[in-house]
Design a protein around this nucleic acid. Structure first.
Lengths: 329, 329
DNA sequence: CGACAGTTTGTAAACGCTTGCAGTCGTCCC
DNA sequence: GGGACGACTGCAAGCGTTTACAAACTGTCG
């Protein structure tokens, strides 16, 4: 191994040409074939590898994009990161992943670090930062949000989201196919909750389903248990579509308390596909957040010049497991 | 936002000093307080942020370390990455995480990419590369392995591993405390398997436990089922310590087939704490791989100048769950 | 045969920063 | 009072690239 990695100069000297020529060979500039051959040989024998830092100094691009992930424990965020990496790899760029931005200040600091490093773009997953602050931090570095719960009208920074309606649609189709006619919904708050609820109202009829009841939750398991108890007391739905998996877990508890057996007496569908959803008893049929596709979409957005606003939402898919079955009777 | 981020020159002009002085202020060189104040003000009003690429060109350091992770799906690798990040953050460095190096060629390419970027160090998790090839790729970039299954004697590149004996010791202590006297072991292959098996032989007596049987597996669930069936046929142990969680899951199956109820008839302990281990029925008591500590150890190693070889192994901890209970009778 | 377009190559000036060296002061000591 | 010494500061030379710009050819065409 060379003590000091070879530089453009070394190659130039070795090939008896100017550094400009070597640079052109490396970056595909106009250079006569014989010369190019000599240079390529020199590069090979010296084991020359361009130093991206120097190039970046001039071009202004670092070929790195920063990814901020709240955590990597669940498969969803990991999958998103993975999707981002997919497209970065295709563009010969690198991802710098930072995790665990617990609070806004911490996250802001990290964004600043990344911007200082002149990243070519930023993918923010589940960000806390409001648009104004963010804009201020990043200057004109391209940014994309993934799955941040932001107000619907927040403009400026593009965002990749899933198509909640499509997810609900898939779940309803599944239930209809099993023979259900009467469904209920444990709804959630904020934007995702609202969209899912709206989709229930819109789409249930199209599957020939009757939406018998909607009870609110705050997305937590406990609220799911409480809302589930309320729902089950009415007892005229054979299937419940939950706003997320946590709520579904709460509904499991409520059903157990009532002495119901799942999925014999009641079918349950979740939303998100959390890591443990497949290990519930019975394993939860749920709508999976398509993490990798989300990540791909976000990264693609970074390179696409076309203007801001919303991106085409990504379609989630249904994961049929043991919590759904034909209705009783 | 400025069209072009301010440079050292801009600050120097604004503060009426030379760029050298500004640089010294930024990096804590010797500069008189009044001057420093003026410069600091200029930096603040201009919003100057040093460009690490330029610095790196000169100093040779990029303040980035590369982390190669096979995947981010399980909590273990994510935790390792997190641990690495912990210590990097303390050193004002950044982690560049690349995932999914499925095969050796792909991994080699990624290592090369990272080295070309002049990373300050490399943390390789579960690497496929053999030492010679790796050495060749990285030149004198510091490298640390985490949890690679390499031959025990492989020298040169430091490696962080867990203390398998300590893990076994904790598990045995747990079983002894519950009142068990007769234990068995479903052993695994390779280095980890061998160490765990050796620890069983060494340590069981010290806990007053009698190691009644050892059956081999290949770390797979199916081999665990088969080996488990063999083991249960003998039936003189009240607790089985499995080489890993997969094997333990196999043993669950074997026990079920035999009509045994866990943990009433048999206590089972796993090793690794896979994502689903807590969702088995009963939830598996297991020895958890301390991912974050592993990551911390690895990263710390990167900065420590002290010489190669093995690192102090990291102690795993026991996660008591539902698969262990006092022995029957 | 000279001008002209094209092609290929080299020259040199950036890019934003660090750092060895040398200069400029003001002090201290004998 | 003069030299030595320190403490600051500026000058300028890099670091490894890219990239206008210009130079040097090769043919081509009139």
């Amino acid at each position: 191994m060379p003590d000091r990695p070879p530089t453009l100069h070394d190659v130039a000297k070795h090939a008896a040409v100017s550094t400009a020529t070597v640079s052109r060979v490396v970056n595909g500039g106009p250079v006569a074939e014989p010369t190019a051959r000599v240079v390529r040989d020199a590069i090979r024998t010296l084991g020359y590898v361009p130093n991206p830092a120097a190039r970046g100094l001039i071009t202004g691009r670092s070929d790195v994009v920063g990814v901020l992930v709240p955590d990597l424990v669940g498969p969803l965020n990991a999958a998103i990161a993975r999707g981002v990496e997919d497209v970065l790899e295709a563009h010969d760029k690198l991802a710098t992943i930072m995790t665990d931005h617990r609070d806004e200040a911490r996250e802001a600091r990290r964004v600043a670090t990344l911007v200082a490093r002149r990243v070519d773009g930023l993918v923010l997953i589940g960000s806390h930062l409001d648009d104004a602050h963010l804009r201020d931090l990043v200057g004109d570095t391209p940014v994309v949000h993934v799955g941040a719960e932001r107000p619907p009208g927040a403009d400026g920074i593009p965002e990749v989201r899933i198509d909640n309606a499509a997810g609900i649609d898939a779940a309803l189709g599944h239930l209809a196919a099993l023979g259900h006619r009467d469904v209920a919904h444990l709804a959630g708050p904020r934007r995702d909750g609202a969209e899912r609820r709206a989709a229930m109202h819109d789409l249930a009829p199209r599957h020939g389903l009757h939406l018998r009841a909607v009870v609110d939750t705050d997305f937590s398991e406990e609220s799911g248990r409480a809302a589930g108890a309320t729902l089950l007391a009415e007892g005229d739905a054979t299937a419940v579509l939950c706003a997320n998996d946590r709520v579904a877990a709460g509904l499991y508890a409520a059903a157990r308390e009532r002495g119901l057996s799942l999925p014999r007496d009641l079918s349950v569908v979740g939303f998100d596909d959390l890591p443990w959803s497949g290990y519930l008893d019975p394993p939860l049929t749920t709508v999976r957040q398509p993490g990798r596709a989300l990540g791909r979409g976000a990264a693609a957005r970074l390179f696409d010049p076309d203007a801001g606003g919303e991106l085409a939402p990504v379609t989630p898919d249904l994961v049929p497991r043991g919590s759904t079955a034909p209705p009783p009777h």
